[in-house]
Structures are given as C-alpha cells and as structure tokens.
C-alpha cells in the first residue's frame, strides 16, 4: 500500500477555508488542475455517496465518490471509482484544523492506494506534488494577498 501526505498552513480563518473546500463540486474553483466538474445524478454535493465527475486540464477524466463529510471536524473523505492513473483502492482524506494562536488554518491531505510496484514511487510523487501540494499551494496563494 502506498501513502501520500501533504499539508500546509493557509493564512486565513478555518471557517473561510472550509466554506470553499467543503463543496465537493468546487475543484475547478480552487485547484489549478481541474477544468470542469459536475455531480452525477444531480445530487447535492454534500450528500454522502454522491459522485463528482471531473475533467483534468490535461484531458483525463476522474470519478470520485464522497464517503464522509464532517462540518464539525472540517473534513471529508472520498475514493476514486475511475481514473487514468492506474490506482486501486484509492482512499483520500482532507482535513482542516484551526491554528488558534494565529487564526490561520492547517490543511492536510492524505491518500492510500495500491498500484503496481514499478509505478508506485512515481505515482506517490506525482500525486503529492501535482495534486495535493499544488492544491494546497493554490489555497495558500488565494488568501496570501
């Protein structure tokens, strides 16, 4: 099993960050790599079990299912149903934690998955850098002005 971990401190209050990332259909709004997204069967994006169907800017299509969402913990979890990446059993979690002494927000993004051993290291590195760190970096930049 491969694991990916990335985290950052976002210079904004947790409630402000959460209002953006809690929307399971909002990847095009805050990440630099998603072109367009929709929720299948017209379900609300905070209904557990809903599926987001999105297209990456490089053309790949991905379907992901929302498994958990907590406004109390400011977290959500999802799995990949279909993707061009060649990953199996892909389970990811996103979480915000308030930094109480600075009124900033700690954001952490993790994933676990299976892949063929010869591709595992490359996948871990590309997901960490091009998806998680890129997404968190965009969040940071959004508030950093």
């Amino acid at each position: 099993m491969a694991k990916v971990y990335s985290s950052a401190v976002i210079p904004a209050a947790a409630s402000a960050v959460w209002s953006i990332v809690r929307d399971f259909n909002a990847l095009p709004k805050w990440t630099p790599f998603v072109a367009e997204s929709r929720i299948e069967q017209n379900k609300p994006p905070d209904q557990i079990g809903c599926i987001r169907n999105f297209r990456l800017k490089d053309g790949g299509r991905i379907r992901e299912q929302l498994l958990a969402l907590s406004d109390y913990e400011m977290s959500f979890e999802y799995s990949i149903l279909e993707s061009p990446m060649g990953v199996e059993n892909y389970l990811a979690a996103f979480r915000l934690i308030p930094v109480t002494d600075s009124d900033h927000t700690f954001a952490e993004w993790t994933a676990e998955f299976d892949a063929s051993t010869d591709r595992e290291d490359d996948l871990v590195e590309s997901i960490r850098r091009d998806v998680f760190a890129a997404g968190l970096g965009a969040l940071k930049a959004r508030f950093n002005r």
Binding site: Y5, S6, S7, A8
Partner: peptide, 13 residues
C-alpha cells in the same frame, strides 16, 4: 503533532 510538509514545520494541537 502533524507535519506541515510545505515548509518543514509542524502543527501542535
């Protein structure tokens, strides 16, 4: 403790 990977610091709760 949780690592802040973007700048090698950490969050302490």
């Amino acid at each position: 403790l949780r690592p802040v990977t973007s700048d090698d610091s950490c969050l302490m709760e």
